[in-house]
Design a protein around this nucleic acid. Sequence first.
DNA 1: AAGTGGTCTAGACCACAAT
DNA 2: TTGTGGTCTAGACCACTTA
Lengths: 254, 254
Amino acid sequence: MADNKPLHAQLYEEMLRRIHSGAWAEGEQVPSERSLIAEFDTSRAPVRQALAALRADGLIIGGRGTPSRVQRIVPSQSFETFVSFTEWAHQLGRIPGQRVIEAARRAATDLIALELNLAPGEPVVQITRLRTLDGEPAMLERSTFPLHVGVHLLVADLDAESIYQTLSAHHLTPARARHVFDAVAAEPLDVECLGVALGAPLLRVRRCAYDDHGAPVELADDRYVPGMATFAIENAAHHRTTLTRVPAEATGAP
Amino acid sequence: MADNKPLHAQLYEEMLRRIHSGAWAEGEQVPSERSLIAEFDTSRAPVRQALAALRADGLIIGGRGTPSRVQRIVPSQSFETFVSFTEWAHQLGRIPGQRVIEAARRAATDLIALELNLAPGEPVVQITRLRTLDGEPAMLERSTFPLHVGVHLLVADLDAESIYQTLSAHHLTPARARHVFDAVAAEPLDVECLGVALGAPLLRVRRCAYDDHGAPVELADDRYVPGMATFAIENAAHHRTTLTRVPAEATGAP
DNA sequence: AAGTGGTCTAGACCACAAT
DNA sequence: TTGTGGTCTAGACCACTTA
C-alpha cells in the first residue's frame, strides 16, 4: 500500500475492503475501537476518524453503549455514475443507446449565456440526443456547451461515445454539478422522439456542471419518460445524503 | 445556554450564530484554531470537531496552510427543513397553509403493508392534505401512517399544526427518509385541489420516512404544481451532496 | 459490573502557504 | 521563517447498554 496517504485514510480503505469482502459481515458487529487500536498498533484518533468516514457513508451505524454494526454493502452511486447516463446504464447491466437528433453551433441566448458565464451572443454548441435503455426511448437530452468545450464534441462520434468520456479525455471532467428537478408537459419534439402523447408528463432534470475551477462545462435539460428512470435520495438526520438514479420499477424498501 | 449538550455542539452553534450574524463575514477568514482554543478555553479536539461540522455543511472551506474562510451564508437545508413542508416554508419567509381533504382510518393495501412493514389488512391512517404557499395551492400530500403513529394525528388539529411537529411531540421524529422523484399526470382529485388541468404534469415525490430504530413512520405521495417548488441537488466528486427544496423561480447559478 | 462508543485534555510533529 | 490546518499519541472520564 502507498505510504504517502495519512494513516486514517489507509485504515478507512482497509475497513472498506473488509466490508466489501464480507470479512465484516452485513448486520454483524464491527470490532471495538480498542481492538482496532491494538490490531493496527495506533492510537484512537485515526481509528475513530476512519470509522467516522464509514459512518458518514452510511456503511456502519450504532454506537452509544452498543458496538457499531455494518449497515449495508450497496454504496451510493459515485459522482461519475450519477452524472453520466452511459455509466449509469452500464452499472445496471443494461445497454445504453443514443441517437443524435441535432448537433449545432449557434449563438448563446441571454439565459444560456448567463448560466454558462458567457457574453450574450457568444457561440455555443448545442446537442440534442435521444437516450435509450435496452433500445427503448428513455430520455431526451438537450445539452449546451461553451464553444471551447463543444468543439471536441462536434468532431466526436456521439452515436458511439459517451459525452462524459469524450470530455474526460480532454481534461474537461465535470467535478461539481447542480441538478434541479421538476415536471413538464411533453412538447412536439419530445413526442416525436420519446413516443409519448403531446402534453404527457415528463420528469425534467436540469443540470449545470462545472469543472475543477468552477467554470461551467455543460448546461442540460434532460426529460425522462416516467417508468424508465427515477431519482432517489436517501437522507438522514445524522449522515451524508446519498443519491441514486434508479430504474423506475425499483421503488425500494429500507 | 443549555449545559447538557457536548462542548463541540455548543461551539458549533456559537460559530453558526457568528456566521449568520455576520460577525464572521462571508469570504473572510475564520479565526485560527489556536485563537479559538484560547477564546473558549478548551482543547483542540472540540474546536476541530465543530469546525469539521461547519465544513461538512459547506459553510467554511480552505485550510492546508491557509486560514479557513467563510464560504457562503445560505446553508443547505437541514433534514428537518427538507422533510417538513411547514419548516421549509417558514425558512423561506413564506406562509405555509394546509387544508385537510380527508383523514381516515382504513385497512392497509398489500402494497402499503409491504412498504410500512405491516401485515396486509392491518389498520393504517391516511391523511390527504392540500398544502399552500402564501395561500396558493402548491402540493397535494397523501400520507399513510401505521396506526400507532396515526392515532396521534387523528386527534390533532391538522389545519393548524405541522404533522412533523405533532409526531415529534410523541417522540416519533423521522430520522431517515427515502425520496423518489418522478412525473405523473394530474388525476381528478389533483385537478380539484390544485386547480390544474386534467393530465397536467405534476412533480411527484414519494417519501418513506423511518424513525431512529428503522421502523417505518410515514409513507407519502406528494404532488407539486410546477412553478411552485422544485428540488435541487448539488453534488460534487469530493464533498457531501446537499439537498434543497427551492421555490420554482430560483434556478440558481453557482 | 463490564464493555462500548462519546468526549475531552495536553501535548507533539508534519506539510503547506504566505511573508 | 512563521503561522496555518492536518495528523497523531497517550492518556482520562463520561453516559449508555447489556448481561
